[in-house]
Write a protein that binds this DNA or RNA. Structure first.
Length: 421
RNA sequence: CGGGCUGUAGUAUACCGGUAGUACAAGUGCUUUGGGAGCAUUUAGACUGGGUUCGAUUCCCAGCAGCCCGACCA
C-alpha cells in the first residue's frame, strides 16, 4: 500500500480524553477511530491487524474441529426467555430495540442461546455429536462504564466457540484441546510469555473456569501467580483450600494485575436443559448434550498486545499480526531515489511481501522515521541517496537501534521468511 | 449505578466578566530533506438550554458528552 494513498494520518498528540496507552497509540497511528465511549471503528491499518488476529484464531479453532458460522446480531426474545435471560432484572447490560410492529429484539451480548437454539434443529442422535460451531461477530453490551480504550467496550468483536458433546468425558477431552489451542493463539500473537492460565469461578456446573490472563498494570483482574508452574488463581476464588487443591505453595504466589484475554468454561447442561437439546444414545435413551463455551475478544487482545509490547516511540507489532511486514521509506526528492524506491516497492509486491510504502513527498526524513516507529511495522527499509551510495537498502528491525545495508534480494528474502515468534 | 474531575478551531492547549492567543494539522508561495524543518500568508474555535449582569466563553443551575475511582461484568 502506498502511504500517499492512505487516508489516515498519524498524530503527534493523543486525544486528551484517552489515558490508556493502547487507545493513545492506536489513535495516534490511525488504527482506530473513537465513535463514543466504548465504541471504536477500525480504520484500514487497524482492520489489517484485526484480520490477522482473526486468521490466527480461525486456524487454531479449525485445527481442533471448529466449524465457523455466523449467528445473527438481532436476537429473538422468545429464544432468550427459554433460558430466562431476556429480563433486564437478570441481564442488565442488554441493548434492546423495538420492531415496527411493536415486538422487541435484543442485540447479541453472548451466543449460547443462539447456538443452542439452532442445534436443537440438527442434533437428534449420538451420531450427530460432538459439534464445535463458532462465530466471529460483533457483540453489544450496555456497560455502565466502559474503560481502558479498546479493552472494554460496549461494542466489540469476538470469537465464541461452543462445544456440544455427548457426555462429560467427551467434553473434557475437547476442553483440554481448547486449552492448548488458546495457549497457541496467545503465543502466536506475541504475548505467550506474559499470559497465564488462571483458575476462576466455574459457576454451577464445574468447580473452575479457566481464564487466560496477561500480566499488565492496566488489567482489571487481580491474580495470584505461581511463576514456576505458570498457574494462577483469580482473586475471586483465591483461598487456602484452592491453593492446596492445586498443590501450590502460598509463599510462592505473587499478586499481579492482569487482563483476561480469553476464557473457557464448562457449561454442563445449563443451556441444553432449557432448550431441551437432547440426543438418543446407542440404546435409544434420550440424553442432554454437555456444553462448553470458549471466548476471545479480538479488540481486547489487540489492545493488550499494544499495552504490553509498545515502547516510548510507539507500537511494536509482532510479525504475526503487524499490518504490514515491512515499511519502505523513500527519503528526499531525488529522482534517482524515488525511482529506486519504486522499483523496490514493486519487487516486494511481486514477491508477495506485505509492504507499506512511504512514498509521500514533502515529508521530512525525521517525520517518516517517527511515523515508522509509531506504526510499529516489524521491518523498516530505507531508500535514500545515502543508502544508494552505500550500495543498497538500509534494513532495520523495529526493535533494533541500527540497521544494515542489504541488497534487494536480501531484503525480499528476509521479509519473505515466516515469523518465528 | 454512587463519587470525583473536565467540556475553548480537526488535534493539543492559554488567557479572560468587556477585541479569544499559541502550537500542530490544513491551503498557498519560496526554501529545506537521515529523526516530527524554516519564513511569509490564509482558513478555522467557547457543548446545549436557562439564569445573574449594561455585557457571560468566563459566575450560577440544568441537560448532554467525555475521562478517572468504586460497584457490576455471560
Amino acid at each position: 500500500m502506498r502511504q500517499s494513498k492512505l487516508f489516515t494520518k498519524t498524530r503527534k498528540e493523543a486525544p486528551a480524553d484517552e489515558t490508556s496507552r493502547n487507545a493513545e497509540l492506536l489513535i495516534r497511528g490511525g488504527f482506530i477511530h473513537k465513535e463514543m465511549a466504548g465504541v471504536y471503528s477500525f480504520l484500514p491499518l487497524g482492520l489489517r491487524v484485526l484480520n490477522k488476529v482473526e486468521d490466527i484464531i480461525r486456524e487454531e479453532m479449525n485445527e481442533i474441529g471448529g466449524m465457523e458460522m455466523r449467528t445473527s446480531v438481532l436476537q429473538n426474545k422468545e429464544v432468550w426467555e427459554k433460558s430466562n435471560r431476556w429480563s433486564d432484572e437478570v441481564v442488565d447490560n442488554w441493548f434492546k430495540t423495538k420492531l415496527k410492529n411493536g415486538g422487541e429484539v435484543g442485540l447479541s451480548f453472548t451466543n449460547e442461546e443462539a447456538h443452542s437454539n439452532i442445534l436443537k434443529q440438527y442434533v437428534s442422535s449420538y451420531k450427530d455429536l460432538p459439534i464445535y460451531p463458532y462465530d466471529f461477530k460483533n457483540i453489544f453490551r450496555n456497560e455502565t462504564r466502559s474503560k481502558s480504550g479498546i479493552m472494554r467496550g460496549r461494542e466489540f468483536y469476538w470469537k465464541a466457540l461452543y462445544s456440544f458433546s455427548k457426555d462429560e468425558e467427551e467434553h473434557n477431552v475437547f476442553y483440554e484441546k481448547a486449552k492448548t489451542a488458546y495457549q497457541n493463539i496467545f503465543k502466536k500473537v506475541g504475548i505467550g510469555h506474559l499470559t497465564y492460565i488462571t483458575f476462576a469461578s466455574g459457576g454451577s456446573f464445574s468447580k473452575f473456569s479457566h481464564e487466560f490472563q496477561t500480566i499488565t498494570s492496566v488489567g482489571e483482574d487481580t491474580i495470584y501467580l505461581d511463576e514456576n508452574s505458570g498457574i494462577a488463581i483469580n482473586k475471586e476464588v483465591y483461598n487456602d483450600e484452592i491453593i492446596s487443591e492445586l498443590k501450590l505453595n502460598k509463599e510462592n504466589l505473587v499478586e499481579k494485575r492482569a487482563v483476561e484475554v480469553g476464557n473457557i468454561f464448562s457449561l454442563g447442561t445449563k443451556f441444553s436443559a432449557p432448550f431441551d437439546l437432547k440426543y438418543k444414545d446407542e440404546n435409544g435413551e434420550e440424553k442432554l448434550v454437555v456444553m462448553g463455551s470458549y471466548g476471545i475478544g479480538l479488540g481486547r487482545l489487540m489492545g493488550t498486545v499494544v499495552e504490553v509490547l509498545s515502547d516510548d516511540k510507539g507500537i511494536v507489532w509482532p510479525e504475526s499480526i503487524a499490518p504490514f511486514k515491512v515499511h519502505l521509506l523513500a527519503l528526499g526528492e531525488d529522482e534517482i531515489v524515488l525511482k529506486e524506491a519504486d522499483k523496490v516497492y514493486e519487487s516486494l509486491l511481486k514477491a508477495g511481501v506485505e509492504v507499506l510504502f512511504d512514498d509521500r513527498t514533502n515529508v521530512s526524513a525525521g517525520e517518516k522515521f517517527s511515523d515508522a516507529d509509531l506504526l510499529g511495522i516489524p521491518f523498516r527499509a530505507v531508500v535514500s541517496t545515502r543508502s544508494i551510495k552505500d550500495g543498497g537498502i538500509e534494513l532495520k528491525k523495529r526493535t533494533e537501534e541500527k540497521g544494515k545495508i542489504v541488497t534487494l534480494d536480501e531484503l525480499i528474502k528476509t521479509c519473505s521468511t515466516n515469523f518465528t515468534n
